[in-house]
Design a protein around this nucleic acid. Structure first.
Lengths: 145, 145
DNA sequence: ACTATTCCTATCGGATTAGTATGATTAGAG
DNA sequence: CTCTAATCATACTAATCCGATAGGAATAGT
């Protein structure tokens, strides 16, 4: 029941992009140094965020990444679902493929469904702006996980 | 971010024990057949529940397991924490060993702490009785996951 | 003694995690 | 037009975790 490094690092990257947004593109190398995570690993993660449309990229010299929307319009839920796959606590809530034939009478399914609901509501209610709104411009990149 | 089979099976076992409680001990073989899970695997899981004091066991012929408390006094949270280890979504919330030196200023820690809080509140608010209270005695063992 | 049960410890294949490695492609600067 | 800094794409890998399986010892009722 743990969030993997992909989800955690993705959130840190997105917050980093929000904090250091100056209108232009931010190279991955800068994020890598501030967050102390290898650029190669961040590359994999931000690629999926880019394909999902959460960040825009620019190749070549002076290239990099930037948020494609304002921080108040990007939620932690979006970021985590893209990188973690799904936040459903059990597979049978994910899609019809994994549903079991006895789901109609399952005694535990409503419990898991309820858990999924509160998790979804929580992560979808947190925007990138919520993470950075109390942070002075000087205090950037304060992460621990 | 998935609950493992250990947590799911543990919950199913405990519900099974609650549903079939007739005062005596219920052999693991019966649970195994009703739930369609190998007895050998259930053995491992119920051992940890037994060591934690959630079930009482009796060895030898006519032995088995039974709940050590009434269903309304056993929560899903207890069961899941024993079998899953911890429901904290990130390791630095688990214990001091995993805490990072920058936890005071971490921008993501309050978010994860909040997620842990709602998960804890939800699972601790669900008792075994909640799972079985609407189940006719005839309809036993209806699980899908 | 026999049998049904829990208890204990070890093993194991496969999947997942958390990266690392290599190189191609792109685009601005000189 | 070349150099360089960057993204993009794909493959690989070591380590860990998951989901069991296996074999036998201990216990207790008949």
């Amino acid at each position: 029941m743990k969030i993997s490094t992909k989800g955690r690092y993705a959130l840190r990257m997105m917050i980093d992009l929000a904090l250091h947004d100056a209108g232009g593109f931010i190279p991955l190398k800068d994020i890598s140094e501030r967050q102390d995570i290898t650029a190669k690993y961040l590359e994999q993660i931000i690629t999926s965020l880019s394909k999902a449309g959460l960040v825009k990229s620019s190749r070549g010299n002076n290239g990099g990444y930037r948020l494609s929307r304002a921080p108040e319009n990007i939620t932690a839920g979006e970021i985590l679902r893209i990188t973690e796959g799904s936040l459903a606590p059990v597979a049978c809530l994910d899609d019809e493929v994994n549903q079991c034939p006895r789901s109609e009478t399952c005694l535990t399914l409503p419990f898991w469904k309820g858990l999924q609901n509160i998790i979804d509501a929580y992560v979808d209610g947190a925007t990138l702006y919520d993470f950075i709104k109390n942070t002075p411009a000087a205090d950037t990149g304060n992460f621990c996980i």
